[in-house]
Computed example of a mutant assay.
Amino acid sequence: MQLVVARIGRAHGIKGEVTVEVRTDEPELRLAPGARLATDPAATGPLTIATGRVHSGRLLLRFEGVTDRTGAEALRNTLLIAEVDPEELPEDEDEFYDHQLMDLDVVTADGTEVGRITEISHLPSQDLFIVERPDGSEVMIPFVAEIVAEIDLEEQRAVITPPPGLIDDRAEIASARDAEGSDDADGSGEDAS
């Protein structure tokens, strides 16, 4: 099975290095020197990683045969794809591959059906589940421990505890004015004490 593990960004310097947007929790395994990766678009690859290093918190890669800035710029926005055994699981039990999460049923802790995961969006700050609801609309669920309480691969479901307003229109609105109004029993605007 093929998994997208990174997206190539802009060229860095003049010797063929590129910045990389990492899309794997195992970059030391998937993006190590010597790794041969398929690409999307396919005509760009396959690419073999010659070197890798971290610079200012960003992963930089250089590929075999790419020795200058022009060659590096030509790779921009290319997706890097690793071949992975479908039975392979991440080392950490709280980590999942995208293919494991796709099509899971999403339910609330009380069993209310929310929908089915149709896409996983990888953002810099967090990942999002794109969930198709039974009526065809979509809702985005942040894949964070505070909201996604459980991933049960055997039952093929994700259990969520959404805050008010995430999946419905019943958002709780709290303001300082509401708090002041509760102390104002006589309606005069002044505190009775």
Rank of each mutant, 00 (worst) to 15 (best):
residue 148 V to I: 01
residue 26 E to Y: 13
residue 136 G to Q: 10
residue 17 E to H: 14
residue 18 V to I: 03
residue 78 T to V: 03
residue 159 V to A: 00
residue 124 P to K: 06
residue 148 V to P: 02
residue 98 D to S: 10
residue 123 L to V: 00
residue 192 A to K: 13
residue 53 R to F: 12
residue 140 M to Q: 13
residue 187 G to A: 05
residue 140 M to V: 03
residue 19 T to A: 12
residue 13 G to T: 10
residue 122 H to R: 12
residue 112 T to L: 06
residue 53 R to I: 02
residue 34 G to M: 02
residue 49 I to E: 05
residue 189 G to D: 13
residue 146 E to F: 07
residue 81 I to Q: 01
residue 24 T to R: 12
residue 6 A to C: 02
residue 4 V to P: 04
residue 143 F to N: 14
residue 105 D to V: 03
residue 96 F to W: 13
residue 141 I to K: 03
residue 30 R to V: 00
residue 93 E to C: 02
residue 184 D to G: 01
residue 155 E to Y: 06
residue 33 P to L: 03
residue 137 S to R: 09
residue 138 E to M: 09
residue 35 A to S: 06
residue 130 I to D: 06
residue 41 P to W: 02
residue 11 A to L: 10
residue 146 E to R: 14
residue 75 L to T: 00
residue 169 D to I: 00
residue 2 Q to R: 15
residue 77 N to L: 13
residue 21 E to W: 10
residue 100 Q to F: 12
residue 159 V to R: 08
residue 45 G to E: 01
residue 126 Q to F: 15
residue 163 P to G: 08
residue 138 E to D: 09
residue 17 E to F: 15
residue 182 S to D: 14
residue 26 E to G: 02
residue 24 T to Q: 12
residue 2 Q to L: 14
residue 165 G to H: 12
residue 95 E to D: 13
residue 139 V to F: 11
residue 19 T to P: 07
residue 149 A to T: 11
residue 97 Y to L: 11
residue 2 Q to A: 07
residue 178 D to W: 10
residue 86 P to K: 12
residue 190 E to K: 07
residue 90 P to K: 08
residue 98 D to H: 09
residue 16 G to C: 05
residue 183 D to E: 15
residue 137 S to D: 14
residue 15 K to H: 14
residue 10 R to W: 12
residue 101 L to N: 05
residue 4 V to L: 07
residue 168 D to R: 01
residue 59 L to D: 04
residue 8 I to M: 06
residue 113 E to F: 07
residue 25 D to K: 12
residue 119 E to T: 00
residue 12 H to F: 15
residue 121 S to I: 13
residue 87 E to R: 09
residue 88 E to W: 14
residue 188 S to L: 10
residue 149 A to D: 10
residue 118 T to V: 13
residue 187 G to L: 09
residue 74 A to E: 09
residue 21 E to G: 06
residue 60 L to D: 05
residue 87 E to L: 10
residue 125 S to L: 14
residue 7 R to C: 02
residue 38 A to L: 10
residue 68 D to S: 04
residue 144 V to R: 15
residue 48 T to C: 02
residue 74 A to P: 04
residue 144 V to L: 11
residue 146 E to M: 05
residue 52 G to E: 08
residue 41 P to D: 00
residue 72 A to R: 13
